[in-house]
Each structure stands twice: as structure tokens, then as C-alpha cells.
Simulated scan of single mutants.
Amino acid sequence: MQFNRAKFKDVILYTCHKSERSKLGAVKLNKVLYFLDMIRYAWTGGPVTGATYKKRKHGPTTDSLLPVLRELTAERKLEIHDVNFFGFTKKEYVPLVAPDISRLSKEEIVLLDEVIDFVCSDNTAKTISEYSHQAPWEMVEFGDEIPYHSAFLLYPSEVSLEALEWAEAEAKTVADQSAQSNQVVLTDGSVFRSRLLEARQ
């Protein structure tokens, strides 16, 4: 996957702008990015930002986040504060500029809104970390990259090893086709939306 740094910045600023400060910290910001990219990949064969995610103790994280946050603060687009949150130190993100969403498609913004709502409004940092410990996270060793084709395992279904191997082969085919064409076909996101509703209950 090719990492789109500009869209990555846009998603971060948009997330910080849309979320209540008290409900967004470092853990949740990582999870917004992860679920956005993985779900978009499962729907269309391509992620939004193309960031690389790795298995960490508190769920998937991306090594791209900290350097990009430093860039955004240096550009005076974002302030980051350490605040006391019930006896713990928590990162608080204060956007200084309105987010630029011109690089994001309407479908990407709709999905991002849903992911922000699910991660930030319906979960604590602890519950979203636990929720992110699903099959894609479990299938790799600590510190290893979580492959994008594992996004299909986020959906509620019984997935066999053969199906996973098929998904990996299909992912390569989609990637090869995407390299030759900019056209992307959207698929139905109702399954993931039902998964979100189940998680909220």
C-alpha cells in the first residue's frame, strides 16, 4: 500500500475537529485511523491513507502517527497537551485550523464520521482497545504488521484458512488492477454497520 501523507494529515485534523476533546486521546486516534483504513479496504480494495498498522499491547497502532503529529504542531495546525484524566495522563488534541476535506471523497467522509462516532462516543480507550483485539490483531506477532487483507476478518462470519488465503490472493489481484485503473467500485457497508450496532448493545 502506498502511504498518502496528505490524506493522513487530513483525517487526523478532521477527527480532532469532530471529536469532543475529552473523548479523544492517543489510543482512540490510532483506532480511528486503523478502522477507517481497514474497513475502507474491505469495501473497495483500497484504504484511505495507506498507513501501516502493527500489533501493539493496546491494539493496532501506526508508526506514522507521531511524526505526522509533530509536523502538524510545527505547522501550527494542531496543539497537543498532556492533561489529567481521572488520575491518568491523557493526550488532548486542539485543532488550530479547519480541516481540509477536499482530498477525501464523500464516501470516505461518511465512513470516517461513523468510525469517529463508534470509537470516540460509544467506547472508552479501554473498551476500544479490547474491541480491536480481533482476528486481524490476533493473527500476527507483537510488533508485526497487520496485513490489509485481514480486514475481511473484521466482519462477523466463520472464516476458514482457505478463505483467508483466498482473500490474500484476491487482495493482490485488486492491488494489481488498482495500479492500472483509478476506478473503484463501492460495496455495501451494511454488514459493518450492523457490527457497530451489535458492539454498541
Rank of each mutant, 00 (worst) to 15 (best):
F118A: 14
V110S: 11
D176W: 08
E108G: 03
K23H: 14
E71K: 13
T73G: 00
S160R: 11
A163Y: 09
N182M: 13
D100C: 02
D113Q: 11
E198T: 12
V159R: 13
G189D: 12
V184Y: 00
A167S: 12
G45F: 03
V119Q: 10
L104D: 01
V191N: 07
L112Q: 08
L33F: 04
E108C: 03
P60A: 09
M139V: 12
D37I: 02
I101H: 00
A199L: 05
A179K: 06
V140Y: 08
E79C: 01
V185G: 05
I80K: 00
T49V: 04
P60R: 06
V110I: 11
L78N: 10
L161R: 09
N123G: 08
W166I: 07
L153M: 09
P136N: 07
L24V: 03
N4I: 03
S22C: 03
P156H: 14
A169F: 01
T89D: 02
I39R: 12
V83S: 01
S102H: 13
H81C: 02
A135Y: 15
V119F: 07
T127H: 04
D144N: 09
K57F: 15
I116S: 11
D100K: 04
T124N: 04
K57E: 15
T44V: 11
M38H: 05
V174E: 11
V159W: 15
L36S: 12
K7F: 07
V97K: 04
D63I: 11
Q183R: 14
P99A: 13
T44C: 08
V110K: 14
R21D: 14
P67Y: 04
D63M: 11
Q201H: 09
V48M: 08
W137K: 01
A163S: 13
L197E: 15
V185F: 12
T52Q: 09
V140F: 02
H81F: 14
